[in-house]
């Protein structure tokens, strides 16, 4: 039996008191490549952010290798959405990748030779070594995504969270990234990827989390990525769920 890498218990997340994730409960064994799939506004990004402690939980808990996230931070690598940063920021590609090592460095210590070596290795892994000294705005969308991936690799984590790494990237990058994720898995890492191209789910992932405000299914692709579950995930708006969430946000007395 594989150890559990990532576990969520009874987690509810609310923005402005409006619930966006209802009572999620799931468990991911180590060494899986996991796709997080669901329609827009299903709470995929929120799931990741909640797992990383970036948004507060209304209830429930998140565990990484059996312990609280705070204690296990060093085991976690994160690739945020590409739009989340200012690409005009005056840093080079290598600078950004070096940021992945900051966590291990701790306060005050500067990245030295060892860290630069790590960064160079990660750059090479994602195939953008020649671009190391470019300013990040001068890259294409796919290249920018590779930079973020390299930064996550430099974190040298056990568990990776990737938020839409395939959005706005070219086909070559997509397959390169996927190749890399496979390599990670083969070295025993667990990778969770927010994804919304349903056609590639079967090819890319061996585990899938189907999400639409609540957990529809979580399990191996063969058993969980079924038409019936997809129907449940994508089939129509959950009007009543929406209405209830809205009522909770407004807190209008019912009588």
């Amino acid at each position: 039996m594989l150890p559990t890498a990532f576990e969520i218990h009874d987690m509810t997340v609310a923005y402005n008191r409006r619930p966006v994730l209802w009572d999620i409960d799931l468990e991911i064994p180590e060494g899986k490549l996991v796709g997080i799939v669901g329609p827009n506004g299903a709470g995929k990004t929120t799931l990741i952010k909640a797992a990383l402690g970036l948004v507060p939980l209304a209830s429930g808990k998140v565990e990484i290798y059996g312990k609280n996230y705070r204690q296990q931070r060093h085991l976690v690598g994160y690739v945020p959405q590409r739009e989340s940063v200012d690409w005009d920021f005056p840093v080079t590609v290598r600078d950004v990748v070096l940021m992945g090592t900051y966590g291990q460095l701790g306060w005050f210590r500067r990245p030295g030779k060892a860290q630069r070596a790590i960064a160079d290795r990660c750059l090479q892994q994602v195939g953008i070594t020649p671009l190391a000294n470019r300013q990040i705005r001068q890259l294409s969308g796919g290249q920018q995504q590779r930079v973020f991936l390299a930064r996550a690799l430099a974190q040298d984590a056990q568990l990776y969270f990737l938020d839409e790494p395939f959005s706005g990237v070219d086909a070559a990058t997509e397959s390169a990234i996927f190749e890399l994720l496979h390599q990670l898995r083969s070295t025993g890492k667990t990778v969770l990827v927010v994804h919304h191209d349903l056609q590639t789910v079967r090819d890319y992932f061996d585990y899938v989390i189907l999400l639409n405000m609540r957990l529809v299914a979580c399990g191996p692709v063969e058993t969980s990525f079924t038409n019936e579950n997809l129907q449940m995930t994508y089939g129509g708006r959950l009007t009543i769920l929406d209405e209830a969430a809205e009522a909770m946000r407004q807190r209008e007395p019912e009588r």
Binding site: D10, T12, P19, W22, D23, D25, S59, R214, L215, V216, A217, N229, M232, L238, I240, L241
Partner: peptide, 13 residues
């Protein structure tokens, strides 16, 4: 019935 949530996870919501 509609969201297919497991029995032991519906009380809290």
């Amino acid at each position: 019935e509609h969201l297919g949530m497991p029995l032991d996870h519906v009380h809290e919501p």
